[in-house]
Amino acid sequence: MTAHTADAMPLEPNCPKCDAEIGQAHNARCDVATCLATGLQRLDHPPTCPCPPDVWTGQRVGTAECAEFGWMFGPGLPDLNRLFTTATWDPGTRRWTRPDTPHTTASEGETR
């Protein structure tokens, strides 16, 4: 595997919105937190969504995928709008994939 721009980017020790530390869950009203079922902003998901809390990793969700796909405006500037409108969220792997990539189901770990 080759190094991507996101791999070389320094990790942010705290979420820029809710101040969660790496490895800690975002707070309930954090607009950086991701719904792990849909890949979209957690604030927008229904309260009945069974997804687990999103944990701050040091990078916003999608940064690594943008670098991997070459969807960057420049060093350290991922094109997240392109990612959210073009790529597909895979809840099994909890990452964005190109539209033609097979996906796994979160509950069964099977390819669909």
Score class of each variant (00 low, 15 high):
M1I: 06
A3L: 13
H4K: 05
T5R: 13
A8V: 12
P10G: 12
L11S: 06
E12L: 15
N14W: 03
C15P: 04
P16E: 11
K17T: 06
K17I: 01
C18F: 03
C18Q: 07
E21F: 03
E21K: 11
E21I: 06
E21Y: 08
G23W: 02
H26V: 04
R29D: 11
C30W: 02
D31M: 00
V32M: 12
V32S: 11
V32T: 15
A33T: 01
A33E: 00
A33P: 01
T34M: 08
L36E: 11
Q41F: 00
L43C: 06
L43Y: 02
P46K: 08
P47M: 09
P52L: 10
D54R: 02
D54P: 09
W56G: 02
G58C: 05
Q59P: 02
Q59C: 03
Q59E: 04
V61F: 05
V61R: 07
G62M: 01
A64P: 04
C66S: 08
C66E: 07
C66P: 05
F69T: 05
G70E: 10
G70A: 09
W71A: 12
G74N: 12
L77Q: 15
D79F: 12
L83T: 11
F84D: 01
T85K: 12
T86R: 09
T86Q: 13
T88V: 15
T88A: 13
W89H: 14
W89P: 03
W89N: 12
D90M: 13
D90S: 07
P91M: 13
G92D: 05
G92H: 03
T93R: 06
R94K: 13
R95P: 00
W96D: 11
W96I: 06
T97L: 15
T97M: 13
R98W: 08
R98V: 05
D100T: 15
T101Q: 14
T101M: 15
H103F: 10
T104R: 06
A106V: 10
E110T: 14
R112W: 09
R112Q: 04
